[in-house]
Amino acid sequence: MTKSVEIVQNILDSNDRIAAGNKEIFNAHQIFAINMMASPGAGKTSFILRTIEKLPKGIRLGVIEGDTAPVTIDSDKVVAAGMPAVQINTGGNCHLDAVMLEQGIKALPLEDLDLVIVENVGNLICPAAFKLGTHINILVASIPEGDDKPYKYPAIYRGVDVLIINKIDLLPYIDFRMDYFKAGVEMLNPDLRTFVVSCKTGEGMDAWVSWLAAQVNAVKNK
């Protein structure tokens, strides 16, 4: 005789609970936190470096770099740009989870920070499933990846609050139907806040940074 036991529980519940704890840590320090996702090479690190360049002087930023391999290339660049960074080696894992992020947060000088940006592992599938406890999720899509990505990887477009379309300096060289791309995004995430930028030329960065600064200040002055 078998007995049926009702459960109805979200599979990633325990991750979500730890993520909620991470958010409390950010809030206690009045830090605005961002989880940045993208495929490898979309320009996440470039975008962080450009953001550092443009950020108003009063805003202090810390960066958590998630990487599948124990290389500190990305975090070294951030440190060279004058901001604290910690590297989390996911040990081959394809995504950061809330436990890994908790480790990263503890390694940052939280008392000194107003903003934390997490560069998630380059991957369009796995990071979408794991909440980290940041205030917003952002996705960096880039022109060379092609205009069909929302159609092929719908899940990641569902869970983001801001979309960055990067490498627009390459539009003249690549067949990228912006209307087709945006229609896909619209179906999955209507009215998604979008910034169109080039990390190469700096185009579009001012609009992003002024929006970002407003979010940071709102949390800071709470």
Partner: peptide, 21 residues
């Protein structure tokens, strides 16, 4: 139209299990 909303499809849950006592 692309003016659409996702109603379901994002479930990720354990519904129930069968056990022997």
């Amino acid at each position: 139209s692309v003016n659409i909303r996702v109603i379901s499809g994002e479930e990720l849950q354990v519904d129930h299990i069968d056990i022997q006592r």
